[in-house]
Every structure is written in structure tokens, then in C-alpha cells.
Design a protein around this nucleic acid. Structure first.
Length: 110
DNA sequence: TTTCTGACAACAA
DNA sequence: ATTGTTGCCAGAA
């Protein structure tokens, strides 16, 4: 049967693409949603590889502290912050304010 | 082929 | 409370 399991990366992309506008989520939350809470690291690495794919809002994924740890991987180093601010998210000192307010739980999956 | 590293987070002491 | 170690998967040298 077509039980072709998608790679871990693919699963991550599937969730990241579902992050609604103006919301963010965390690496660990995605990993946990996939059933592998210890793979948070891989989620971040998947984002690194996400540049090869379209429609992957990697800027909406931050670490559990609401800190923009991956900003340095974007074009320039402030693009990530500007993208988020463009969506109405306030960022101070590379950290999201009202983090709990903009946090989106992937478990919802809509 | 093996070895190392990498957008994090949980656990142990 | 903080610090250090472990887990996880994939890609590059």
C-alpha cells in the first residue's frame, strides 16, 4: 500500500504551512505534535532546509522562549523580525511580546 | 563509507 | 535556581 512514510522534514513542513497569519509556533511544539518531543532540534534543521521549498513560513517558528533564534538564517538578519511585525506581532530585543497571545498550537491542526 | 554538525528542548545533578 | 548532557534526523565533507 502507499504507506510511504513521509520524512520527518515533510511532516514538519506540513504543520508549518498551516500556521495562520499573525500567529507563531515553536520548534518543540511541532515536534511534540509529531509524537517526537525530543526532535525539536530537527524541526529547526528542517526549517533550514525549508528554503528549498516554497510556502514555508519559517519566520513563524521560534523557540519556546519566543526568541527569534533562527533570524540569522534569513536574508539579512532582520527580515524575520520585519515579517513578523508586518503580521502584527510585536518584537522587542529579538523576543516576541505577548507571546502567549500570538502562539498557535499545531495540535489544533484546524 | 564514517564523522560531524546543526533554526531546540527535556532531563539530571 | 543554573549548568551540562542527551536525544533526534538529515545532509555535507
Amino acid at each position: 500500500m502507499n504507506s510511504r512514510k513521509e520524512s520527518f522534514f515533510d511532516k514538519v513542513y506540513t504543520i508549518v504551512k498551516k500556521i495562520p497569519y499573525g500567529k507563531v509556533t515553536t520548534y518543540g511544539l511541532i515536534a511534540r505534535c509529531l509524537g517526537t518531543p525530543k526532535s525539536a532540534r530537527m524541526v529547526g534543521y528542517a526549517m533550514n532546509s525549508s528554503h528549498k521549498f516554497p510556502d514555508i513560513p519559517a519566520h513563524r517558528v521560534v523557540n519556546r522562549n519566543g526568541l527569534l533564534t533562527g533570524r540569522h538564517h534569513f536574508f539579512g538578519s532582520s527580515l524575520m523580525q520585519e515579517l513578523l511585525e508586518n503580521e502584527g506581532i510585536i518584537i522587542i530585543d529579538n523576543k516576541i511580546e505577548n507571546f502567549n497571545n500570538v502562539l498557535w498550537n499545531p495540535s489544533i491542526k484546524n
